[in-house]
Amino acid sequence: MVSIRVESLSLAYRVRQKLTLAARDRRLPAGGRIEGHGRSRHVTALDGVSFSLDAGDRLGLVGANGSGKTTLLKVLYGIYEPTNGTVAIDGRVDALFNINLGFRPEATGRRNIELRGLINGWHPDEIRARMDNIIEFSELGDFIDLPFKSYSQGMAARLAFSIATSFEPEILLMDEWIGAGDPSFQEKARRRMNEMTEKAGIMVLASHNHALLEKTCNKILELQQARLKVFCGTEEWFGKVSPAAAAVQ
């Protein structure tokens, strides 16, 4: 059964004073709380976060910039390793963070589909099976056999979107809702996203678009300065039902 169990999750990392002879870069990574001084200075990006999700859950992650939304998504995906606490995930996790990552300008659209598929961990047979569907959805026609660099921005975005959403994820992580292309494609993309999120056992979406979250999610997790502020039902969070009524539900 697809599920996510997060217990007392914390993530802190040292702000490394890089061993360098050049002038020190005093910029800090955005987000989290900065604690300590000198060599012990560290950023607490997540602090004691606990929640659990089961099949059918659609979680909306909200919070101000730097509150830890993207960090939490990256911990769930496995890019960051938690400093403390546990993350138990049952199900294959797919993420839509940066759908433009790794496109090669000199390679054709078709070759870029193959390469992106390999990077996503797809088997060559799976890539072949999805190829026609991706090309058809992207509406690139004969352009698919031309180098990626000859595409307009909209065409590139359509190809990226078509590849990124061609899988059927068990657990889908998204940093903002993605869309692409001109108005007619945007509508098609919206339908594809809805279909995909419906098929996913669990979806976690970080967004500042509250109307979208209200429409898409059944649970909301609000982060504030790396800590969990609220984890509740969408209706309760949007104040449509009182906490007491939500508890009864």
């Binding site: 990256k74 995906y77 496995g78 890019i79 940066n98 990552l101 790794g102 990077i119």
Partner: peptide
């Protein structure tokens, strides 16, 4: 960097 921060390869 972008791959390391965006994928689990």
């Amino acid at each position: 960097e972008s791959f390391i921060k965006g994928t689990t390869l």
